[in-house]
Design a protein around this nucleic acid. Structure first.
Length: 805
DNA sequence: ATTAGTGGTGTTTTT
DNA sequence: CACCACTAAT
């Protein structure tokens, strides 16, 4: 069948899209149409009846990518994508664990902690066991635990060769036991549990293997060890894994991603084919060449060179500012010009290495009255008022959730202080129960303890009990409404002076829940999953069909979709053999049934809140400048990109210089930044920058020097400084770029000192450097100079021959 | 129980 | 600088 889907694909893309059913690796460079290939392949497989829509599994890393994929599939095929297993590793693992919670050893209502909850839990464990928080920082310990899980290791399997590690493992074990008691998981746990479930339960494993004939993985270079193994397990020997990735864009090794997985893939998945997509459809020639040269400095590469049929386009604009403030001013000016020439601000991105850098930029933009949007701050579901409301909901769903209980037992305050909580914790530990159970028995028959602490706890227990009763039989938005009112959250924030935003957010939460409830896909997903496995028949399809007809507000459309889904797919992989139409009577409702639908919805909503933290700012539709970290920009593209703060120590970040491969990863990150631009690219840096409350003097990033001069156009400040070259112009001895150590604020010094702090100088032996401090005067005058790789040195001006650079 | 004030500490990137 | 944990005072 010659499909319209295949039109306008280049030969490599076409080859990738139409590969036979076998494992393959697609090395897809930036802007080479990776997502298009992935989605077109899915559409092609379905359209040509090689697979049922339910017979494929597509995995991404971000929710955004998953949504994008679903949207594009919907646009290509006249099917509804509901019920399809397209999502993030975490989302799909969660889905699997919900469907098989008993086999996975989890309560049906298990909750997912975010990173903050996780750290708090570790901290509690350490406190309870008298572990020194100085020697074992809760944050680091939580990090350690996640890293072990990402490597697929339970406490028993971690090799510990020193006392410190042994202690960490011990905490890990306690943490794990506590999670189990409370019925909570963390991000890594989702995947590890899912992996173990598949590994141990043959029936379940075979079920999924029989179902997912085609497995497609996006951003394969970001997979960690556990995800790699998870894929291997679910693929088995039969199924085809279509992996798309770009080793040059691997920027998540700090959280366990292994680029080596791309190499190993070929061997461990018996990949027959490797296809390289090297034609770039995004950027003009100069930008692409800069990117190619830059990434060429990396040794560890699979090898790939992007090309474009586009013209060279504009030169890359380089701007050196004296201060971060000046850098921001420059960007403001340029953005104004761009806006005046008609470039929409949403098409302009302002990128930086670390979040802390956004502050100055925001300030300048705000003063200039330019609209902007910052990505990556505090997100919706991470706001404290939202977390409080969710904690109440979690207690309604599962009162044994200690973390939730601790969060709100005294918020709003109801007279339960540290002392009362301690008593509860003692009682819980003694009885081996949850805090909730301890609280209940305390308020109950045993009246041993004095009244004072009891009263508050009793009131709290009453409140939660009442809430739970009230929540039975009402809709999800109503539940949240009830929680906000009954708990006193609304009243509390009404009396707080800065509470208006908080109230608005709480109302927004009710909104979000309403939207979530109205989304029929959620319900269908869940029911289809439970059903398809429970009856070992093709009832997923029946359920989808049945529920689609009854729940979807656009019933006619849904019917058409269901018919489309059903037509001709009976013999395709994706469903265990059987007759789809025969089993329609097994409806979603009857098959699932163990809990109230509204409860199910609540559980789903809470998962949703954990897995998808939500966008951070409301006004998404406006035409605003886009501010984000380079990490956050991965996968996006813009007409114009500003890559700012290109300084040694910042980008590459000083922390990366110690660990092996650190600089190469930073360079890949720079590569990502550069390849986001379609038409225009600005590279900016500042000689001095306010960071952590101190002024630091930096030299230009090595990545700037790795950019060919012929591609660059230098822009000067409007008020040109008197002559003199700058840190960028220093001779290109590769040894002279190293992180800058800590600096002190400039001492405004003395006449007679021929040098200023922040000035660039040359030394015959040490090369170029920046003056970072000075003291004394006249013949005693000394300056401290940062020579990059050569180190930071104090030099007496009377002896050392320093020239202005 | 809550508040204000102090001091110490860190701070890359995030599903 | 900004966030915390802890202390002292109300």
């Amino acid at each position: 069948m010659q499909s319209r889907l295949l039109e306008n694909l280049n030969p490599e893309q076409l080859a990738a899209v139409t590969l036979p059913r076998e494992s393959a690796m697609i090395l897809a460079g930036a802007g080479s149409g990776k997502t298009r290939v992935l989605t077109t392949r899915i559409a092609w497989l379905i359209e040509t009846r090689q697979v049922n829509p339910l017979g494929l599994l597509a995995v991404t890393f971000t929710n955004k990518a998953a949504r994008e994929m679903l949207t594009r599939i919907s646009a290509m095929l006249p099917i509804n994508t509901r019920g399809m297993w397209v999502g993030t590793f975490h989302g799909l693992a969660n889905r699997m664990l919900r469907a098989h919670h008993r086999d996975a050893g989890l309560p049906q209502t298990f909750q997912i902690m975010d990173t903050a909850d996780q750290v708090a839990m570790v901290k509690r464990m350490m406190k309870a066991n008298g572990i020194d928080e100085e020697r074992f920082k809760p944050r680091d310990t939580a990090w350690f635990i996640s890293a072990q899980k990402d490597a697929g290791l339970r406490p028993g399997s971690v090799e510990a060769f020193d006392d410190h590690t042994r202690q960490l493992v011990e905490i890990y074990a306690m943490y794990e036991a506590q999670c189990q008691r409370e019925g909570v998981t963390d991000f890594a746990e989702l995947i590890l549990r899912s992996y173990e479930l598949l590994a141990r339960n043959e029936a379940i494993r075979e079920h999924y293997r029989a179902r997912f004939a085609h497995i497609l993985v996006d951003e394969f270079q970001d997979t960690n060890r556990l995800q790699f193994d998870w894929l291997k397990l679910i693929a088995g020997a039969q199924n085809a894994v279509f992996a798309v990735g770009d080793d040059d864009q691997s920027v998540y090794s700090f959280r366990g991603a292994k680029v080596a997985n791309m190499r190993d893939f070929e061997r461990e998945f018996n990949a027959g084919t490797i296809i390289k997509l090297e034609q770039n459809y995004r950027s003009h020639g100069n930008i692409l060449e800069a990117a190619n040269v830059l990434i060429g400095h990396n040794q560890q590469r699979l090898g790939k060179n992007l090309w474009t049929s586009e013209s060279q386009g504009e030169p890359i604009r380089l701007f050196e500012a004296q201060t971060d403030f000046e850098e921001a001013q420059f960007i403001v000016e340029q953005v104004r010009d761009l806006k005046a020439t008609g470039v929409p601000l949403v098409e302009v991105a302002l990128l930086y290495r670390s979040n802390a850098q956004s502050r100055v930029l925001e300030h300048a933009l705000f003063s200039a009255g330019l609209p902007y949007r910052v990505y990556g701050g505090l997100r919706f579901f991470e706001r404290q008022e939202i977390k409080h409301a969710l904690a109440y909901l979690r207690l309604v769903a599962n009162p044994d959730d200690d973390a939730a209980l601790l969060r709100v037992i005294n918020f709003p305050t109801r007279g339960i202080g540290a002392r009362s909580i301690e008593q509860l914790q003692d009682a819980a530990r003694a009885g081996g129960t949850s805090l909730w159970q301890a609280a209940c028995s305390r308020g109950g028959s045993r009246g041993g303890s004095p009244d004072a602490p009891r009263k508050g706890v009793e009131g709290f227990v009453l409140l939660i009990d009442r809430l739970r009763n009230e929540c039975a039989g009402i809709t999800l938005p109503e539940m949240i409404e009830a929680v906000i009112e009954r708990s006193g959250l609304r009243t509390h924030y009404e009396t707080e002076r800065e509470g208006a935003d908080r109230i608005a957010n709480l109302d927004e939460l009710v909104n979000a829940a309403a939207q979530f409830s109205d989304d029929p896909m959620r319900m269908l997903e869940m029911e289809a999953d439970a059903d398809s496995f429970a009856s070992q028949g093709p009832t997923a399809l029946a359920a989808a069909r049945q529920a689609g007809a009854t729940l979807d507000p656009h019933a006619a459309e849904a019917e058409a979709d269901a018919a489309m889904l059903a037509a001709g797919f009976e013999d395709m992989p994706g469903l265990p053999p059987g007759d789809a139409s025969a089993d329609i009577a097994a409806t979603a409702g009857t098959a699932l049934a163990p809990a109230e639908p509204a409860d199910q919805l609540l559980i789903q909503f809470l998962s949703h809140a954990s897995l998808e933290a939500g966008d951070n700012q409301a006004n998404a539709g406006d035409d605003a400048l886009q501010l984000m970290t380079v990490h956050a920009a991965k996968g996006l593209e813009f007409h114009t990109v500003f890559a700012s703060g290109l300084e040694e120590g910042l980008f590459p970040h000083e922390n990366s210089l110690n660990d092996a491969g650190g600089v190469e990863e930073e360079r890949r990150l720079m590569y990502v930044a550069v390849t986001r631009a379609r038409r225009r690219l600005y590279l900016t840096f500042a000689q001095s920058r306010m960071l952590h409350g101190q002024t630091r003097y930096n030299v230009a990033s090595r990545f700037l020097r790795e950019t060919p001069v012929k591609l660059l156009k230098r822009l000067s400040p409007t008020y040109e400084r008197g002559g003199g070259s700058t840190s960028f112009d220093r001779p290109r001895t590769p040894s002279s770029y190293a992180p800058v150590q800590v600096q002190q604020a400039p001492k405004i010094e003395a006449a007679g000192m021929p040098f200023r702090i922040g000035q660039n100088v040359r030394h015959a032996k040490f090369g170029g450097g920046v003056i970072i401090d000075a003291e004394g005067r006249g013949s005693d005058a000394r300056v401290q100079v940062n020579f990059g790789r050569e180190g930071v040195k104090w030099l007496a001006l009377a002896y050392a021959k320093l020239d202005p650079a």
